[in-house]
């Protein structure tokens, strides 16, 4: 092993591969697709991945801590739908907002509680709670699939805000990226997320509050989902609860996993999400420009996700010694 080629190969990891692929796709699209490299389209790309990226931040924090949150999309859509329904029913804004935020936090805490204290695998807890959140809000709290934003409400105004010609959610996305970066890199609790994800038992043995931290992570991801939901409603002026049945959830996992955040926990960070989001954003945009039907896009995305999971499985093989019974 010698020379710069050796150094390059040794430093080759999933994040860099994906970055290279993303750049390659970008260049290819730039050359091959007319209208790709316009300011309008580039902003559209960033905008399209802003919400996805925000959701992916919430998901990443949970995944780094060796968990997964399959209830995010349900929480995202249903919390905002409920909020808008309450507003439509004439409830004062601050009251409705507090109520919904309380509900969102409650779901996050229940998820965290069942994972942390009842030892139920995260994947089952959040699958069940996602189903419950959708079913409960849809059948008990709102009256139709889509709930519009009331005229003149701040959510509607938020959607129209521009700064230097860039939509405000892009800034929010970048701000959140900085926030999550600082949290994971420079705060004690952020480091704890990695320790707990890398080896929960050892983390607990050295005195890290592993279980309360789990509650915190699921609460964080629920609140992130709520924020993403608000931004979605802001740009579309309504929220459609059918998004729960779409593949959005898998797009979130795709962004996290393809950026190099291993599903076995303890690995990755904000940079991985940014890289993953960039690749997915460019791909989706390119596919839309080429005019691939949505159904085929789903097929392509899910196949990429499968490939990413296979690569993840090969790079981070499950450790049969520390894998827990029922950890499936």
């Amino acid at each position: 092993m010698g020379g710069s080629a050796g150094v390059f190969l040794r430093n080759l990891n999933q994040e860099r591969i994906v970055l290279v692929v993303a750049l390659a796709v970008f260049v290819a699209a730039m050359v091959g697709l007319p209208g790709f490299l316009t300011a309008g389209n580039l902003i559209a790309i960033v905008r399209s991945i802003a919400v996805l990226g925000i959701l992916a931040f919430g998901m990443s924090v949970v995944i780094i801590g060796r968990g997964i949150d399959l209830s995010m999309v349900a929480v995202m859509a249903m919390s905002v739908a409920w909020y808008l329904q309450l507003l439509g029913d004439g409830m004062p804004d601050y009251q409705a907002f507090a109520l919904v935020l309380g509900g969102v936090l409650a779901i996050g805490l229940v998820n965290g509680f069942l994972v942390a204290y009842a030892d139920v695998p995260a994947i089952f807890v959040t699958l069940a709670s996602g189903s419950f959140v959708f079913g409960y809000v849809r059948s008990q709290l709102i009256s139709s699939d889509a709930v519009p934003v009331p005229d003149g409400h701040w959510v509607e105004l938020l959607g129209g805000l521009r700064f230097l010609g860039v939509p405000v959610e892009v800034y929010l996305f970048l701000a959140l990226a900085a926030l999550v970066f600082v949290f994971l890199r420079f705060t004690v609790w952020g480091r704890y997320v990695y320790y707990a994800g890398d080896n929960p038992v050892a983390a607990r043995n050295i005195g890290i509050p592993v279980r309360p931290m789990l509650l915190l992570r699921y609460a964080l991801s629920a609140v992130t989902a709520f924020l993403a939901g608000l931004l979605t409603a802001a740009s579309l002026h309504s929220i459609n609860t059918r998004v729960v049945n779409s593949t959005l959830l898998y797009d979130i996992v795709l962004v996290a996993v393809i950026g190099g955040i291993g599903l076995s926990g303890g690995k990755g960070g904000v940079r991985n999400v940014l890289v993953g989001a960039a690749l997915i954003g460019i791909l989706l945009n390119a596919m839309t420009i080429i005019d691939i039907p949505l159904l085929y896009q789903n097929l392509i995305k899910s196949t990429i996700l499968l490939a990413a999971i296979i690569v993840d499985g090969l790079l981070n093989p499950r450790d049969e010694q520390t894998a827990q019974q029922g950890d499936i």
């Binding site: 069940a128 709670s129 409960y136 809000v137 849809r138 059948s139």
Partner: peptide, 16 residues
């Protein structure tokens, strides 16, 4: 709509 998902969600969580 949704009642089934709600009940299934509860049932699954409780059973697990």
């Amino acid at each position: 709509t949704g009642t089934n998902q709600m009940v299934l969600g509860i049932l699954l969580a409780v059973a697990v």
